[in-house]
């Protein structure tokens, strides 16, 4: 069968598989972010009773492999509780696994916010929620974005294994090509390129968020300046770089 014929014949199935992969990546990505923030905040707490359970959950889901979690939810969980359909199992496993990794990124970036900023919030008598929401998290956000971007790409890549529990996502549909065509290798390369393009799109999207986050902290150009075709002006932040404060100084 001709290469392009094979591609066009399978195009609609591949497209449906692609949509499922995109759904998995987006839904699990967002849920994993929520899990990461909650667990990350808990793990950064000074209270043992809050920190300890979070640490156990994080280490558990980071330490056991994604496929183990997927299989456990698929084969073992129904023994005790609900028998979830494959899509839900996929979303849960991806959410918990990458949420745990994300929690570590959230925690680490919060501790990287200079000690002096934490001290300033004490001097202004801010409550815990207040300082986290208004002062610490906005600064940690810029620091954690690169890690979150990497994790999101990891999640996209990890989603390719859920065909094993019977989900007809993109990798599954790619595999089906093997049955009807001798062009599998070439078609699979197209598949790899599609994954690559999605990953690139995710990375660029997150980079825009990062630019915005940094600009809000007074570092680097604004999104407008970056997206406009005009040559950028010298950033205003430069004249203050000599007074830029490094944290922890006493």
């Amino acid at each position: 069968m001709d290469y392009l014929d094979a591609l066009s014949m399978h195009a609609s199935r591949l497209w449906e598989g692609l949509l499922i992969t995109l759904q998995l990546t987006l839904i699990s990505g967002i849920l994993a972010f929520i899990v990461a923030v909650i667990l990350g905040l808990m793990a950064g707490s000074t209270r043992k009773l809050v920190r300890f359970p979070a640490r156990i959950i994080i280490e558990f889901f980071r330490g056991t492999s994604l496929l183990v979690q997927l299989m456990w939810l698929f084969y073992v969980l129904p023994l005790f509780g609900p028998s979830l359909d494959a899509m839900l199992v996929g979303i849960f496993a991806l959410t918990l696994n990458y949420g745990a990794y994300g929690a570590e990124a959230v925690r680490a970036s919060m501790t990287s916010v200079p000690q002096s900023q934490w001290e300033a919030t004490i001097a202004l008598s801010m409550s815990w929620q207040h300082k986290i929401r208004r002062v610490i998290f906005p600064q940690a956000w810029a620091l954690m974005l690169p890690s979150l971007t990497n994790l999101w790409v990891h999640l996209l890549k990890g989603s390719s294994i859920v065909y094993i529990i019977g989900m007809s996502e993109f990798t599954f549909e790619l595999l089906q090509l093997r049955r009807t065509t001798d062009w599998f290798f070439a078609l699979a390369m197209v598949g790899l390129i599609v994954y690559f393009l999605i990953a690139l799109a995710l990375t660029q999207l997150m980079r825009l968020l990062e630019v915005r986050a940094k600009h809000r902290l007074g570092r680097g150009p604004s999104l407008k300046e970056i997206l406009s075709p005009m040559p950028p002006k010298t950033p205003a932040a430069d004249n203050a770089s000599d007074t830029h404060v490094t944290g922890g100084a006493r």
């Binding site: 990798t171 595999l175 599998f184 699979a188």
Partner: peptide, 18 residues
């Protein structure tokens, strides 16, 4: 970058069937 940003699973499959 291409190798890093595409799934190991698909890479395995490509070589396995290719």
């Amino acid at each position: 970058n291409f190798i890093r940003m595409t799934p190991i699973v698909v890479q395995l499959l490509v070589l396995f069937y290719g």
